[in-house]
């Protein structure tokens, strides 16, 4: 098996990454469309209503994937931060710029869909519960990262500061995960764990898994497309700068 640094350096080459993205893009997009269509139609119209929550349980099929993606995208940001600070991986900073807004959207949607579920079920849009508050902190970490990475005239300084913020903010991920166990929260405990059997009916679990896979594939496709576009834009800027330099050299001569 190849050592990890070899793989890291292999995909540090933007050309290699663009080839990989071009090959994966159609599969990711097609998979996302198929899984999301099946999952959303199943969740909205065919999955059973809950005996306690009634039809409102259907919000779970979009809320849970958004919660999963908000955490996963932040984990991606933290990994990019590590790659940037330790190995100076040239694509890591570019990836962090592109992952940030996507993760922030997922976190915002997780909070909004949670509120839309909370109003009819708990009778309130918001409570300062440990799970809700830790996800709100995650959303603010995303906003901070987006602002910080663009805050300096010298991009390398902003990227370094944002990488440190991404790594430090990763402490919020285990807090989100275990908040329902560590504190007495209004938010219900996890229904799906790696160690135990799921506590929900399989007729609800299947559409949930399908929408989660669909949204994950979709977000992967969006991040690949945004990163490919950023590489093309950076190459265009380099070419234009070189052309201006050549022109000024010629006029000086």
């Amino acid at each position: 098996m190849r050592p990890t640094p070899y793989l890291l350096h292999r995909y540090a080459n933007p050309g290699q990454f663009l080839r990989l993205a071009r090959a994966l893009q159609p599969w990711l997009s097609t998979g996302a469309i198929i899984f999301l269509t099946v999952g959303i139609v199943w969740g909205l119209f065919f999955a059973p209503a809950d005996w306690q929550q009634g039809e409102t349980v259907r919000i779970m099929y979009v809320h849970v994937p958004m919660a999963w993606l908000a955490s996963s995208c932040y984990l991606g940001l933290a990994i990019c931060g590590l790659l940037s600070l330790v190995w100076r991986h040239p694509l890591a900073d570019l990836a962090a710029i592109e992952i940030g807004p996507v993760g922030a959207c997922a976190a915002a949607l997780c909070l909004i869909t949670g509120s839309l579920w909370g109003q009819p079920m708990w009778g309130t849009w918001w409570v300062w519960d440990a799970r809700l508050t830790s996800v709100l902190v995650l959303f603010f970490l995303y906003l901070g990262h987006i602002a910080l990475i663009r805050a300096f005239d010298e991009p390398a300084r902003g990227q370094r500061a944002a990488a440190i913020l991404a790594l430090a903010g990763a402490i919020d991920l285990p807090i989100i995960k275990f908040s329902v166990q560590w504190w007495n929260t209004l938010h219900q405990p996890d229904s799906i764990t790696l160690t135990g059997a799921p506590t929900m009916s399989m007729t609800m679990l299947w559409p949930l898994l399908i929408t989660t896979i669909g949204f994950t594939l979709g977000v992967a496709a969006v991040i690949f497309a945004r990163l490919s576009a950023a590489i093309h834009e950076s190459r265009t800027r380099q070419l234009m700068a070189r052309s201006r330099l050549n022109r000024s050299d010629r006029s000086a001569a």
């Binding site: 959303i40 009634g54 039809e55 259907r58 909004i112 869909t113 979709g218």
Partner: peptide, 16 residues
């Protein structure tokens, strides 16, 4: 509760 469900799905699908 369908207005809440419709709003949640509409926002998520729209943003996606």
């Amino acid at each position: 509760h369908w207005p809440y469900i419709a709003a949640a799905y509409g926002l998520t699908i729209g943003c996606s």
